[in-house]
Design a protein around this nucleic acid. Structure first.
Length: 736
RNA sequence: GCGCGCGUGGCUCAAUGGUAGAGCGCUACAUUCACAUUGUAGAGGUUACAAGUUCAAGUCUUGUCGCGCGCACCA
């Protein structure tokens, strides 16, 4: 039955359309028609959003680009699979739930670990589906039947087995190292979990004096050396002063000692190449326990380490300063030095401070016992693969960025002192034993695995959240690390390695690099062939969007105002291979207008069909006697189809949608329909067939970008032409 | 300090080395016509600046300036 086109298309129809796709099961490649004819699988893994969040512009752009590609591949005859899921986001989630507790006047220690973790699970049940639902609203054609979560039972097994596999290979070790510590989150952080921010501060010049007048330095009657520092409070833990061995000023002082002010400890002056003669006074105070470079120098020079700052960011000793926060201690120490006449100079100085990427607190360097993964052997394979081009980056410049990092990668600190996450499958037994000099020592023995012998207690640490994300391309397909179980997993056989990975550049090291070496280590195959790094969306002032600063744009607001297709249109226009793009609302207005145009053009042609027309194949349309302009339109359609396909495959979604817009609106609507209006109204069959052909193929090409309006328009149209036909989502991409 | 990206009409962006384009905005006109979420026409650009390569440069090279980003042990 011919049904009349409704006058408008608006976003109220979107939900119904989405449900019809999902219910038909088209997001699941197993349900796609023509299984035998389909070329091969095309697989993408959605970067799992944190359960804490709601969709931001970055997610929206990322998801839109992925959906364009997946929908295109599905139409182009692939077994297309897009696997969604969520990340438990260890520290971030723990922080959010702690904040919620704080509002109720509680903290996690009041609850205890077990109850607190339960609290997080409940929180996840309540808020964890926000982003998936928002993705559905935008039309993301993910296979929700394959959705997974990094804390699912299977996934936990995978993580545990992954750790054990590294351990077996000798890649895991525990060590007392200088690590990054967040005093607020109360956990260790890896080097790449820090953000650096420039801060206006001072460079204080402090006099370190020789022990007595007698021991005045030779050739240096002054009897002191001046060090320059940005962190005077760490001087309490100084165990040396270092100078460059080539520095003539201090040549005669090497090997001498000075007395550490305020503490009155005698410390040596040592020579080390790492000291920059140009900076400050050329003499550096060395605090191996609280500074990465000092730690390194301390190792080389065999210096003691004296811990003076604790896990809460407070001074430990000496008594005068004990309990003070870092800033307070700094102020007091500077004052005390000044009173002693030891503060020589204070000059303005800009320097970088390290901040925790989850809470923005200043991170401290502390010596702490943590678990590490040896990176060298893992990196080698990843480097080789990328150099050979087995994995390719778009834009290509990221290849070099990746390789530079990989070549200089340091061991990965994987233990975190939080409660939410995958507990290490490490069990410890402590025994008191007598050592040779008959002192009582504590001997630790470890058990790695699932069923520890009696007396062993599991480590309370959890793994870095990125440890589990690193396994995503296979663990989200159900890999567990248990060979018998994995053998039976068809998804691993059919869909691993995946094809493309789309992500933002800020997690290139945190996530992408780690998936690459993990893929090779656990699966002996690359996790994906192509990595597309989409642009960063800046606000219209060209600044980073920030929720806390209120400078962000909520994609769901755009959806409210303009609908999903218009939102996707605006996002697609701002994709491509650029590093950053500026948000502009006009793009979404243009998108909304385009939705209306598509709807109205279809409705107009449909109005004139009167059930007389069949959809013609390419072969048939070519045989029609078309006029010159019609022929030109046809060849422009063919050219557009080629260009759009090429542009999609090279991640130029911006060019693709732009060309479609030009073709459909300014060529097809403004010229072709106008020129053929007369003949169409008289019911000229050839003209109607021609217009219908160009229209339906345009709708097909537009579908990956604007799936809702095209699906709805196509449905109305084909009801008129052929009765019920297949939906656009599984129609085939135009081939000419 | 090293590295990367960007700089094109008022705004957001296109343009295999070959006549600089689009959208939005602006101006004028049109419209009982599928669409005022429309159409037609128009104004508006020494492509940041300078030098170089070339028959030809927005595009390639070098330098300068401006914006953004990444890396780094300047305490």
């Amino acid at each position: 039955m011919a049904k009349e086109f409704s006058k408008h298309f608006d976003k109220n129809q979107e939900k119904e359309i989405y449900q019809s796709w999902e219910q038909a099961g088209f997001f699941n490649p197993d349900n796609l028609p023509d299984q035998d004819k389909r070329k091969s699988s095309f697989v993408m893994m959605l970067p799992p959003p944190n359960i804490t969040g709601s969709l931001h512009m970055g997610h929206a752009l990322n998801a839109t680009c992925q959906d364009i590609l997946v929908r295109h591949k599905r139409m182009d005859g692939y077994l297309a699979l897009w696997v969604p899921g969520m990340d438990h986001a260890g520290i971030a989630t723990q922080n959010v739930v702690e904040k919620k507790l704080a509002k109720e006047g509680k903290n996690r220690h009041d609850l205890g670990r077990e109850k607190f973790v339960k609290e997080i699970w409940e929180w996840k049940e309540e808020y964890g589906q926000i982003i998936p639902n928002q993705l559905k609203t935008l039309g993301a054609s993910c296979d929700w039947t394959r959705q997974s979560f990094t804390m699912d039972e299977n996934y936990q097994k995978a993580v545990s087995n992954a750790f054990l596999a590294y351990q077996k290979e000798g890649f895991i070790y525990q060590g007392e190292r200088l690590i990054n510590w967040c005093p607020r989150c109360q956990t260790a952080l890896s080097d790449i979990e820090l953000e650096h921010q420039e801060e206006d501060s001072f460079l204080w010049h402090i006099k370190y004096q020789a022990k007595s007048q007698k021991s005045k330095f030779k050739n240096n009657e002054s009897g002191y050396i001046i060090v320059a520092t940005t962190r005077p409070e760490t001087m309490l833990g100084d165990t040396a002063v270092a100078v460059n061995p080539r520095d003539k000023r201090y040549k005669d002082l090497i090997g001498k000692t000075v007395v550490l002010p305020l503490v009155n400890r005698e410390i040596p002056i040592v020579a080390d190449e790492a000291v920059d003669m140009e900076f400050g006074t050329g003499a550096v105070k060395i605090t191996p326990a609280h500074d990465p470079l000092d730690f390194e120098i301390g190792q080389r020079q065999k210096l003691d380490t004296i811990k003076v700052i604790n896990e809460f960011g407070k001074i430990i000793a000496p008594k005068v300063y004990a309990g003070l926060k870092i800033d307070e201690a700094r102020e007091k120490i500077v004052k005390d030095l000044d009173q002693l006449g030891l503060l020589v100079k204070k000059e303005s100085h800009k320097h970088n401070v390290a901040l925790c990427y989850r809470c923005n607190s200043k991170a401290e360097s502390l010596i702490s016992k943590q678990w590490f993964v040896k990176m060298k052997p893992l990196a080698e394979k990843a480097i080789e693969a990328v150099e050979k081009g087995e994995i390719q980056f778009a834009p290509v410049r990221f290849k070099k960025i990746f390789l530079d990092w990989m070549h200089n990668v340091k061991d990965w600190c994987i233990s975190r002192q939080i409660w939410w996450g995958h507990q290490l499958p490490v069990f410890v037994k402590q025994e008191k034993v007598k050592s040779q000099n008959s002192k009582i020592k504590i001997k630790e023995s470890f058990y790695y695995g699932d069923n520890p012998p009696k007396g062993y207690i599991q480590s309370t640490d959890v793994l870095d959240t990125w440890f589990s994300s690193a396994l995503w391309p296979f663990a989200a397909l159900g890999w567990t690390g248990d060979k018998n179980q994995d053998k039976k997993n068809k998804d691993l056989v059919n869909f691993y390695p995946t094809t493309s990975l789309f992500t933002a550049k800020d997690i290139l090291y945190l996530w992408v690099a780690r998936m690459i070496f993990s893929g090779y280590f656990f699966m002996d195959k690359k996790p994906f062939s192509k990595v597309y790094i989409h642009p960063t969306v800046l606000n219209k002032e060209g600044k980073r969007m920030s929720k806390s600063l209120g400078t962000g744009v909520d994609p769901m607001d755009l959806w409210e105002k303009y609908g999903a297709d218009a939102t996707r249109f605006g996002l697609a226009l701002k994709s491509g291979l650029r590093q950053q793009v500026k948000f502009s609302e006009e793009d979404y207005v243009a998108g909304r207008n385009f939705v209306t145009k598509i709807w109205n053009a279809t409705r107009f042609i449909d109005m004139n069909l009167n059930g007389k027309v069949k959809l013609l194949s390419v072969g048939e349309i070519k045989k029609l006697k078309l006029d010159k302009d019609q022929k030109e339109t046809l060849s422009l359609l063919f050219a557009t189809a080629n260009n759009v396909k090429n542009n999609i495959n090279t991640y130029r979604f911006d060019l693709a949608i732009n060309e479609l817009y030009e073709f459909f609106w300014h060529h097809f609507c403004d010229k072709t329909i106008e020129e053929n209006k007369g003949k169409m109204k008289t019911g000229d069959i050839i003209t109607l067939q021609f217009l219908t052909f160009v229209l339906t193929n345009s709708l097909k090409m537009l579908h990956p970008f604007m799936p809702f309006v095209t699906e709805a328009a196509f449905k109305e149209l084909t009801i008129k032409i052929d009765g019920e036909t297949q939906p656009l989502i599984i129609s085939s991409w135009p081939k000419f």
